[in-house]
Design a protein around this nucleic acid. Structure first.
Length: 509
DNA sequence: CTGGGGACGGGGCCC
DNA sequence: TGGGCCCCGTCCCCA
């Protein structure tokens, strides 16, 4: 019995040794295979990065080619169009007026501009050029060389150089004009998002195309896009949370700031180390890459931005730098800034420039301006990101109002309103000082000056500053004529037209 | 005279 | 109750 017990014990110990040996062997095999597997993964990742880099280089080259084509098209424009371009440049406050341009004033009532706007037509047909939102970090070190590369490409591009030129001009102007009022930029890191030029979608791209944040283009898009209306714009609103580590500027640049998505090739495998090695220490090299750089999507910066853009008060709407948390957003259309710059350049002898707007007066007299003025915003924020400026259509509107009789009329109205200020109209337009009863009225009114037209027709290229006018316009497409004359068969799409028509019957003038 | 669009004021609704 | 928001009506201008 005792022998039997000893025998069983020996067998058990032998079995245990064998089992251990087997497990060790299995694990060794697994480890070997895993090592090979990891090696392959590493090589694949390297190849992926190289390919990605090449792809981005190709993209850049193609963009350059496109820009060159655009320049050629521009160069081949008729002289009248070039003159109009000069108008636009003046509107942006760039291209400091030379001697020959100083007296260049759009004749009152000169409306051919509106009709001969090739660029506007392009926009209308939806073929406008790219619009890119760049997340630009003030932390140059962290941004790495990729940022510089992107900037240099942009700066050497004459077509996009308007951005930088205007930016420099504005900054220089602000710096020389009001040096004491410039508040130093906060030293903290901040990201600046810049709309550069216009196409339908601005895309924030992460390095891996899996994390792409599409930010709907605002204001510029024409035609039947469904992003036209503010209600529909929803800049990155639902379903478009901020991409983790969006890093447009890091194209082709595996800098330390490179953010790896969890879906990035191989990283998830690396993160979830499958090794069952007998010695179970975690290899530090296998730690997930870049997770520490992921941006917390719960911050909701984009949501806040979008809501800021269209739910803001009367003044922080257009042509200003919206400061949202740590994200500084430059919205297109720095009309007031541009005008200030222009005013200086045009000199006092330039009646249009002088009469159009003395922004400083506005600042002094308008209580709203002191807190909402884009200029103040600029002063408060050192970094002035002047992007492409108003869209061409906005330029057109702007100059229609600045330089022709319509603008004068608006200005006159503003004066009337200013002179007849009532307690009810305590919300003043920052451009013409006209008073309104509520901030929304001011906001709508200021679109006269800014050219902002948030309401786009879904069936044509038309855009409107007011929703009601869009609604009225859409009857053109539907053929609806709800207003019928009671004395004849005539029907009208607008009530005012019916009223006017009825004078035919009544004989009233 | 009509059609289309720009601009503004008033009023209702909601919070 | 006041402000914000939206819709509607109206007037005007221009083609």
């Amino acid at each position: 019995m005792a022998d039997c017990l000893v025998f069983h014990t020996q067998i058990a110990s032998i079995m245990e040794v064998l089992a251990n040996a087997a497990v060790a062997e299995i694990c060794k095999l697994v480890d070997d295979d895993y090592a090979v597997f990891r090696l392959e993964i590493t090589q694949s990742r390297k190849e992926n990065r190289a390919l990605r880099r090449k792809l981005l280089e190709l993209k850049v080259a193609r963009e350059r080619a496109e820009r060159t084509t655009q320049e050629r098209v521009l160069a081949s424009r008729p002289s009248s169009v070039k003159i109009l371009d000069r108008y636009r440049e003046m509107a942006r406050g760039e291209g400091h007026l030379t001697e020959g341009h100083r007296s260049f004033v759009k004749p009152v009532g000169h409306n051919t501009w509106r009709d001969d706007q090739p660029i506007t037509v392009d926009e209308g047909s939806g073929t406008s050029t790219q619009q890119v939102i760049i997340i630009e970090s003030a932390d140059a070190e962290a941004a790495g060389p990729g940022v510089k590369q992107e900037r240099s490409e942009r700066e050497e591009d004459p077509w996009h150089s308007r951005d930088t030129q205007t930016r420099v001009a504005v900054e220089a102007h602000v710096a020389t004009k009001d040096p004491p009022t410039i508040a130093p930029a906060p030293p903290r890191t901040r990201h600046r998002i810049t709309e550069v030029s216009g196409t339908q979608n601005a895309v924030l791209k992460s390095e891996t195309d899996t994390d792409t944040l599409t930010v709907t283009h605002r204001l510029l898009r024409t035609g039947s896009d469904h992003r036209s209306d503010p209600e529909r714009l929803g800049l990155g609103r639902p379903g478009c949370p901020p991409a983790s580590g969006s890093e447009y500027l890091l194209h082709g640049n595996p800098s330390p700031r490179t953010v790896h998505s969890l879906r990035d090739s191989g990283d998830e495998l690396a993160g979830n180390d499958l090794s069952c090695s007998y010695t179970t220490e975690m290899d530090p090299g296998n730690m997930p890459l870049g997770l520490e750089t992921l941006i917390d999507p719960s911050r909701g910066d984009w949501n806040r931005y979008s809501s800021s853009v269209y739910s803001e008060g009367s003044l922080d709407k257009k042509g200003e730098v919206l400061v949202v948390d740590e994200v500084t957003v430059k919205v297109e259309g720095d009309a007031p800034l541009t005008w200030n710059v222009d005013k200086t350049d045009l000199g006092e002898g330039h009646s249009q420039g002088r009469d159009f707007l003395n922004y400083r007066e506005s600042l002094e007299t308008n209580p709203n301006v002191t807190t909402h003025s884009p200029l103040h915003t600029v002063r408060d924020r050192e970094s002035v990101s002047t992007s492409m400026g108003p869209s061409d259509s906005q330029d057109r509107v702007l100059f229609d109002q600045v330089l022709n009789s319509k603008g004068q009329k608006a200005k006159a109205r503003g004066r009337e309103a200013t002179s007849g200020k009532s307690k009810e109209k305590r919300f003043l337009c920052m451009f013409c000082n006209k008073g309104f009863s509520c901030p929304q009225k001011v906001e709508i009114h200021q679109r006269v000056h800014t050219g902002e037209k948030p309401f786009g027709c879904t069936q044509c290229h038309m855009r409107f500053a007011e929703a009601g006018n869009l609604k009225k316009h859409q009857r053109v497409h539907t053929g609806e004529k709800p207003f019928g004359c009671t004395q004849c068969h005539m029907r009208f799409a607008q009530a005012g037209h019916l009223k006017r028509h009825q004078r035919v019957h009544t004989g009233d003038k």
